[in-house]
Amino acid sequence: MSVDIIILFTFIMAALWTVMTRSLLRSAIGLALTSAILSIIMFRLNSPLAAVFELSVCSGLISVLFISTISLTHPLTQKEVLEHMRERLARFWLLPFIVIVLGITLSLIDIRPVIKLPLPETVKDVRVVLWNLRQVDVMGQIIILLTGVFGVVILFKERVKK
């Protein structure tokens, strides 16, 4: 358990850094790092397959997407950077304090919900669950991927033509 607490702690730290850091590029890298730590947590919670997905899609694909978007925007000049830093600090300084105070208060409260846990599942194989029991979800994945393709066609391609 203590190892898990340390991993969770680094998870929160990575998320905090993602939000607080000044440069957008570092923010995108921080997001990838957060995803990678999340996939370690998933792995430790007996969910290896989902962890692989998280690592490859969120940490890989989405980070590439963010970084390529950021590289399309213009970099700021030195003076603008200084201006921007001061202004950001004014808005974001509160967050670490909120996080610390909230963390301490929540760890003092001990909530133990009275719940009758359901019986463990009978089918233990992810492949069986996904392909046999949840076919609607697989269908939904195909449909939303198609929607995404049309989104790219409409939002990216038509503009180039114009």
Partner: peptide
């Protein structure tokens, strides 16, 4: 038509993504 709360979420998201695209249709 679904009777499953997670499938409901999937179809909600399909509808939402389609709407985002169509709102930006005229650029």
């Amino acid at each position: 038509m679904v009777r499953d709360i997670f499938s409901l979420y999937i179809f909600l998201e399909i509808t939402a993504v389609g709407s985002f695209i169509l709102i930006g249709f005229n650029k």
